[in-house]
Amino acid sequence: MIKIEELTKYYDNVCAVDKISFEIKKGEILGLLGPNGAGKTTTLRILTCYMQPTSGNVSFENFNIYDNSLEIKKMVGYLPESAPIYPDMLVYDYLNFVADVRGVEKTGKEKQIKELADLCGINEVMHKPVIELSKGYKQRVGLAHAMMNNPEILVLDEPTSGLDPNQIIDIRNIIREIGKKRTVIFSTHILSEAEATCDRIIIINKGKIVADGSTEQLKEKNSSDYLIHISLLNAEFNDIKKSLNDISEIKDVVLKSTKDKIVDFNILCKTKNDIRSEIYKKIKNTDSIILEFHTESRTLETIFRELTRES
């Protein structure tokens, strides 16, 4: 549905987005991840026709951002970071204005505003000026702004930044609710959020795509080796290490701590094959008692850190 080709954006001599290409399917919830300054906001601003790229193209079905920006703006609802709504307007007046600009029919206007107020939970602040709202409410008004006149595509830039945990969960539920019917693209640097809400994740670093896929695919792809954590009672680390040396799949055995006769250590494996049974057999021959024995699953967090770490 949305096709991004070789998108590049320079701010003076600084490259913010560097030849990014990807496609977004209809009905997908796409999370754009990356550290601060990775180029997420710039990409979203180009998608929403707020900025023009230095080179490259974005097309929405038959429309492209250079010639059909007005049509694209009609299709896309956008919530910029921190929802910069006119501070001196009442929430109701603001939504009314947005409804007019987005071309909501006069007859259905009241109904639409009411529906959005219900969905976003802003009924009690409708007659307050925006400047008096808390961050969470402001963000919700921003969401209502973005969803006015039911755009097919929603673009949300860090919709949960600066909110408290309850508000984050509320906003996430709203996003998932909207995502059932529409294409949603949102950027975030909160990984659990992306994991909880997205069908697909794209990780950007320094203006380049470093990973693209569902959470499972990303974990799969980036786990060439894995860790086994073991905790033993009444054991001598060096003896254990020696006995484990026979297993060829083991890359290394690393001691984590020894305390009150309890030895904690990690086994780094070379392959994806499960070698836990072999390890168990080795340990069974000794006098040690197994207290803990599990594989450490790699989280999105570790993948993210590896892909975006400064080298």
Partner: peptide
């Protein structure tokens, strides 16, 4: 300055 510019320009206006 407030950034409302961004909201305004991403609505269908020329």
């Amino acid at each position: 300055n407030t950034g409302s510019y961004e909201l305004l320009y991403t609505m269908p206006v020329t």
